[in-house]
Design a protein around this nucleic acid. Structure first.
Lengths: 218, 218
DNA sequence: ACCGGTTTCACATCTTTATGCGAGGCCGTT
DNA sequence: AACGGCCTCGCATAAAGATGTGAAACCGGT
C-alpha cells in the first residue's frame, strides 16, 4: 500500500470547506492534515505539516491565496498547489501560475473531478479547467494569421550559423562575446548579423531579438 | 434544440477510428461529418465541411497532424482543433499549440472524457490532459526561487518614468524615439536609462530588455 | 529647513552597433 | 564548369549606446 497523499486546504466558506474536507477524508489514498479558513499563518501551518498538496482558494480574507503561493513554496517546496476558485480572471490566473501554482480549477468543478485532480496533481500533472487552459494557451499561440491566405512567413530560412548568432543575441551577448563563444572574428559576427537582419527584415539588435523571441525562432 | 457540434476526425488506426466514430455518432449533440485515415487532403476535406471541431491524431502517415494544423486553420478558421495523441513530447506539444491547436489530450484518455472534451472545446475551453498542462505551465513559472530565504528582489522599485523608458526599450525604440515619444531630451533618456540599469543590475540595453521581459516588469 | 529620490538637462568620451564594400574558400545543384 | 548560398574575414565610417561628471527644480517626509 502506498502512503496516502497528504493535503492541507484553505477555504473561507465554512460549508464548502466542510464539504470538501469530508469528501477528502472519505477518499482512500488521501489524508487531510488540516483545513483553514484563512492563510494568515501559512508558514507556521506548513512548516511542520509539509503536505503533498495544498488546495487553495483565491478569495481569502486578509492574505490572498495568490500571495500565499510563494510563501507555501518557500516553506514547503515539495508541496504542489492547486488553486480552486471562482475567478477566471486572466491576471489572477497568471499571477498564480507565475508564483508556482500547479493546477487551477474553477469552483463549479464537480467534487469527483476535484478529487481526481488531486491525484493528477500528485502524479505530476496540472489539472486545469478547460476555460482556464484556453487563456493560458492563447499566450502561446502566435497572433492568428490575420488574412486567410496561405503562405505564412513562419520560416525565415535562417542558416545554422545565423541561428547560433541570434541565440547569442537573445542570450544578451555582445558581438565580441559571441565571436569568442563561436571562435570566429567579430567581423564575421557582423557579417552574419547583416544576413539575419536582412532575413528578419529588421535593422537593429533590439528588433531582431524581439522578433526572434516572438516568432519562437530561438 | 441547438444545432449539433459538427466534427471531422483524422486517425490512421482503423479500430480506434471506428470506435471513436461510433461513440461520436451515438452522442446526441454531436455530428460526425467525416473520419479520415490521413490528412493528405485536409484542405479539400474541410473547405466544404467547415466543421466546428477537428479531432486530429499526430502520428499520421504522410502529412503529420501537427503540420496539418495550420492548414486546417487556413481552410476553415472557425474550426477548433483537438489534438489526440500518444506523444507527450514537449516539442510536439508546443508546435501544435503555436500552430493553433486548442486542446491536447493523450490517447489514454477515457472515451467519455474525450466526448466531454469536445463539448468543452466547443464551449471555448481548452481541454488538456493534466500531464500536458504541466509542461505548458512550466513555461510560465519563473525559475523556482533557488534558496528558500524570503525576500525576493521581485520588485526593482522602478519609478513611473523609468517604467516609461523601459517600456520604450521593450517596444524596440531607440533613445531618440523614446525621447520624442515622451517629449524629453535624449540626454534625459540617457539619464533614466542609467538609473534603470542601476536598479536592474545590468549594463546594456539588451540585458535590460531581457530582464524586464522575464521579470514581467512590462 | 534639510535630505533623499525623481525628473529634467548638458557636455564629453569611449565602446558597441549598423552598414557599405570587398573577397576567398567550401559545397551542392544544374 | 559555372552559379548560388554559406561561412569566413577585413577595413572604414556613421550612428547609437554606455558612462563619467555635474547641476537645477520639484516634492514629500523627518
Amino acid at each position: 500500500m502506498t502512503p496516502p497523499i497528504t493535503i492541507v486546504y484553505y477555504e473561507d466558506n465554512r460549508e464548502l470547506r466542510e464539504g470538501i474536507s469530508f469528501l477528502i477524508q472519505a477518499t482512500p489514498g488521501l489524508m487531510l492534515l488540516g483545513a483553514f479558513p484563512n492563510c494568515q499563518h501559512v508558514q507556521d501551518d506548513l512548516c511542520d505539516l509539509q503536505p503533498d498538496v495544498a488546495l487553495m482558494d483565491i478569495d481569502l480574507p486578509g492574505l490572498s491565496g495568490i500571495d500565499a503561493v510563494p510563501l507555501v513554496k518557500a516553506t514547503s517546496p515539495k508541496t504542489q498547489i492547486l488553486m480552486l476558485t471562482v475567478f477566471d480572471d486572466e491576471d489572477k490566473i497568471f499571477r498564480a501560475i507565475r508564483n508556482g501554482a500547479s493546477g487551477y480549477l474553477l469552483k463549479h468543478t464537480a467534487p469527483a473531478d476535484i478529487i481526481a485532480a488531486i491525484f493528477d496533481l500528485h502524479r505530476g500533472g496540472s489539472p486545469m479547467t478547460a476555460s482556464i487552459a484556453r487563456k493560458v494557451l492563447l499566450h502561446f499561440q502566435q497572433p492568428p494569421s490575420l488574412p486567410m491566405t496561405a503562405a505564412q512567413p513562419d520560416d525565415y530560412r535562417l542558416s545554422a550559423r545565423e541561428l547560433d548568432i541570434i541565440k547569442g543575441l537573445v542570450a544578451g551577448y555582445s558581438y565580441k562575446l559571441i565571436a569568442g563563444e563561436l571562435h570566429i572574428s567579430i567581423d564575421t559576427v557582423r557579417s552574419h548579423i547583416r544576413s539575419v537582419y536582412d532575413k528578419l527584415q529588421v535593422n537593429s539588435k533590439t528588433e531582431a531579438i524581439l522578433k526572434a523571441m516572438r516568432e519562437g525562432l530561438v
